[in-house]
């Protein structure tokens, strides 16, 4: 890493540290979810009676947020729009970490760009929702607002990067690829990029210690992932010695 500017050196170290925290924390948490036993079958019924059925119903729920849809259409609209757009924006960013860029990624760029433009809207909606309804205001804590504001700032700074300050995308890509390849190069000293990148590092570092773990946790929820077959197949409690 010698020869890097002091700023680049700081950010390279920070990036690796955050990556370690993010993956370390994430894996630690997911490992905890994976190995902690289900002593009893607590599938919320009616539920599929086969493993295949459970997999399908979980794919449907994760792809469409069907249970949230059942619960509250207004929250579903905002939440679902946000997650779909986030996915598009995420896909759009992959081009910065891959070389050469796969054709599919090139193909989706215009759609993903539209997503990036729209990203602030559901976030503002979700923020307003927390203020506007007394029930949501009661349950919302600083942490809930923090995540939404952080995401909003990331989105806005990203748009700033793209449309206002016209930054050096080639330099950014070289910097990011350098990090990925473990041979860091200088970071373009561009304020909009530094702000955007710093905010993203904050989000990643915060992720494993927060409710954002729902992103991995959803795959482990026992009420949804257990098969409704307790009479047909004896579920054995791993910690019941007798």
């Amino acid at each position: 890493m010698s020869g890097l500017s002091p700023l680049s050196l700081v950010y390279a170290v920070l990036s690796y540290a955050v990556t370690a925290v993010f993956f370390g924390g994430l894996l630690h948490k997911l490992w905890g979810y994976a190995v902690t036993p289900n002593p009893l079958n607590i599938a919320t019924t009616p539920a599929p009676a086969t493993r295949g059925g459970v997999i399908v119903s979980n794919i449907v729920n994760i792809a469409t947020f069907s249970s949230l849809f059942k619960g509250n259409r207004w929250t579903w609209i905002g939440g679902y729009a946000f997650h779909v757009i986030l996915l598009a924006v995420f896909a759009r960013h992959l081009r910065l970490f891959l070389h050469p860029v796969p054709p599919l990624l090139v193909l989706i760029q215009p759609v993903a760009l539209l997503g990036a433009l729209l990203l602030p809207l559901p976030l503002i909606y979700l923020l307003a929702r927390r203020k506007a309804v007394d029930r949501y205001a009661w349950i919302s804590s600083p942490a809930d607002y923090f995540v939404l504001v952080l995401l909003l700032l990331i989105g806005l700074s990203g748009l700033g990067l793209k449309f206002v300050s016209h930054s050096d995308m080639v330099g950014i890509k070289q910097f990011l690829l350098g990090l990925v390849m473990a041979s860091p190069v200088d970071m373009p000293p561009h304020p909009a990029f530094i702000i955007h990148f710093t905010l993203v590092l904050m989000l990643a570092a915060y992720f494993p210690f927060s409710k954002l773990m729902h992103a991995g946790g959803v795959f482990f929820s026992p009420t949804r992932t257990m098969v409704d077959d307790p009479r047909e197949r004896r579920h054995v409690n791993p910690w019941a010695a007798k």
């Binding site: 948490k29 249970s67 949230l68 619960g71 509250n72 929250t75 939440g79 309804v133 029930r135 949501y136 349950i139 919302s140 804590s141 809930d144 409710k211 773990m213 729902h214 946790g217 959803v218 929820s221």
Partner: peptide, 8 residues
């Protein structure tokens, strides 16, 4: 851990 306090 995973509640996002969506309020559904």
């Amino acid at each position: 851990d995973v509640c996002v306090k969506c309020g559904a």
